[in-house]
Design a protein around this nucleic acid. Structure first.
Lengths: 248, 248
DNA sequence: CGTGTTTATGCGGTTTTGTGCAATTTAATG
DNA sequence: CATTAAATTGCACAAAACCGCATAAACACG
C-alpha cells in the first residue's frame, strides 16, 4: 500500500466518522504505529485534519463545537458582507440557520424592503429588527443541535413557497461531490430549500472547501453563487469555476 | 472516547443548559470523577467555562446574570415557579410568548419529559436546552413587537393540535370582562390557543388584574388556572374566585 | 552497472500523557 | 458542628507519542 493511498484512506475515514483512532488505523492498514503517526503528522501539516492524543479529528468537527461565538468571526463577516450584495429590494429570500447566516442578516442594509422566509428562530429575531422586512418563520420540529426547524412539516411548507434567492450555510462542498451533509434530516431540508428557490447562494468558509461527507445534497452546478472569504481569483477556488456557478 | 471529544461534549452540554453536573458527566461519558474534574479544570484554564462545587457553569451565563434590570423579574420568577407545578411528565403543553413565559420555561425541572408547542422562537430556543422535551415551533408571520408568530397560518396549525395545557401571559384580566387584548391578531391567536387546549393557565402579574381592554378573548370561566405572584388568599383576587378557576 | 542519495518504514528505548485509586482536605447543609 | 458530598493531592500504571538509528527499497547519475 502506497503512502498516498493510506492518506486517502485516512481522510475518507475522517470525513465519514469525523474521527479516527491511531490504533484502528494500525489494524486496518497493517502498518506500524510510527507510520500512522507520521501519516497523521503530514496530513496535519497539509492542514487536512486535527491531531489529538490517541488519534485525529476532522477540522470541521473541531470548529463546529469550539466556541462558535468567536470562531472565524472575521471571515464570516467578510462573507456576510459579500452576500448582502445579492439581495435587492422586493426580493423574497429564504434562509437557513447557522452563525454565518446570522452574520449575513446583521450586515443587511437598514432600509431593505424584502420578504424573508427562515427556518431559524434566531435569524427571525434578528430580521425583526428591520422595519421594512417581512419575516415568516417556517415552523416544525425544533432541532436542539442546529437550532433550526426541520422535519416533514417544514418540507411541506417549503414546497408551497417560491423564493427568489436561497441563502444557506455549508457543512462541506467539493468540486465533484458537490454539496454534502452528515445528517439525513438536514440533507432533505437543504434539498427542499434549493428546490423552492430560483437561485441558491452558498456561504462557505474556505476550510469547508474540498470536503465531502456522507450524504449528497446537490452537485455544484445547481448552486448559483459560492461566497467565501477568499478573493474570487484564489487558487483554492479553481475547481469550482463552472459556467453555472458565480464565485464571489 | 478521545479527550478532545469529551471536552466538546461537555461544551455542548454547557452551551445547551448553561450548566452541567460532574456526576451527570461521569454517567454520560462513563469515566471516573477525576477525569471529569480534570477535563473541567482544563476547560477553565482555556477560559471556556466557570467551575463551581458540583459541576460547572457557562461563562456567558455568569456574566449575563445581572439582568435584574428586567422589569418585575422577582415577581415573574415567583409566578413561573408556581406554574411549573402544573406540568407533569408526558404532557403536551402549548405556550405563548413574553418574559413571564420565558421565565416559566427556565424554571422547569431539568429532566421533564414532555412535548411543547410554542409560537415564540425565544421560548423554543430555551426549551431546546432540555434533553427530554420535544419542541415544535409553530410557524407563520413573525411579529416584530411581540416576537411571536401570528396570522392565519398559525391559527390553522393550532386548530390541528390538541394540548393538555396552554400557558399564556396576560395583557389584562377582569372579573366580569374576562381576558382582553388590544390587537385583533393577538386576540384571534389567544382564542385559538385556548380552543385547542384542554385546560388553560394564565400567568399574570398582579398589576394587570382588574383591567379591561378593547377586545374580548374569553370570560374567566374558560380559564382553569390563574397564577399571580400574590398569595392565593390575597384580597385582590376576590373577584376571581369562581368555581371553574383555580387560583395559585 | 555500481555507488551515493533520498525516501519510507520499522524497532528499541525514553518521555509524555491520560486515567484511575486511595487518602486527605475542603465545601455545603441542616 | 457534625455529617455528607465533592474537590484535591500524590501516586502508579498503561497507552501513546517521540527520538534516534537501522534497514531497505526506490531513485539518480556518471
Amino acid at each position: 500500500m502506497l503512502k498516498k493511498e493510506r492518506h486517502d484512506f485516512i481522510m475518507r475515514q475522517i470525513n465519514l466518522h469525523n474521527r479516527v483512532l491511531t490504533s484502528d488505523l494500525v489494524q486496518l492498514l497493517a502498518v506500524s504505529e510510527d507510520t500512522i503517526r507520521r501519516d497523521l503528522q503530514e496530513l496535519v501539516d497539509e492542514g487536512k485534519l486535527f491531531k489529538v492524543h490517541g488519534g485525529a479529528l476532522s477540522k470541521s468537527y473541531h470548529s463546529s463545537f469550539d466556541d462558535s461565538t468567536v470562531y472565524a468571526r472575521d471571515s464570516k463577516i467578510s462573507i456576510a458582507k459579500k452576500a448582502t450584495s445579492l439581495v435587492k429590494d422586493g426580493m423574497v429570500v429564504l434562509t437557513g440557520g447557522g452563525t454565518t447566516i446570522l452574520e449575513f442578516v446583521k450586515q443587511l442594509p437598514q432600509n431593505l424592503e424584502a420578504t424573508f422566509f427562515t427556518i431559524s428562530p434566531l435569524v427571525a429575531v434578528e430580521l425583526a429588527k428591520y422595519d421594512n422586512i417581512e419575516v415568516i418563520l417556517i415552523g416544525g420540529l425544533f432541532s436542539k443541535n442546529s437550532q433550526i426547524t426541520y422535519g416533514g412539516q417544514v418540507i411541506t411548507q417549503l414546497s408551497e413557497i417560491k423564493a427568489d434567492l436561497c441563502m444557506m450555510g455549508t457543512s462541506a462542498i467539493h468540486p465533484s461531490d458537490g454539496l454534502t451533509d452528515t445528517y439525513w434530516e438536514i440533507n432533505q431540508l437543504k434539498k427542499a430549500m434549493i428546490a423552492c428557490s430560483k437561485k441558491t447562494a452558498v456561504l462557505c468558509i474556505s476550510e469547508k472547501l474540498d470536503i465531502s461527507l456522507r450524504l449528497k445534497v446537490c452537485p455544484i452546478e445547481n448552486i448559483s453563487f459560492l461566497i467565501t472569504e477568499l478573493d474570487e481569483a484564489h487558487d483554492a477556488l479553481a475547481g469550482y469555476r463552472v459556467k453555472e456557478l458565480n464565485i464571489l
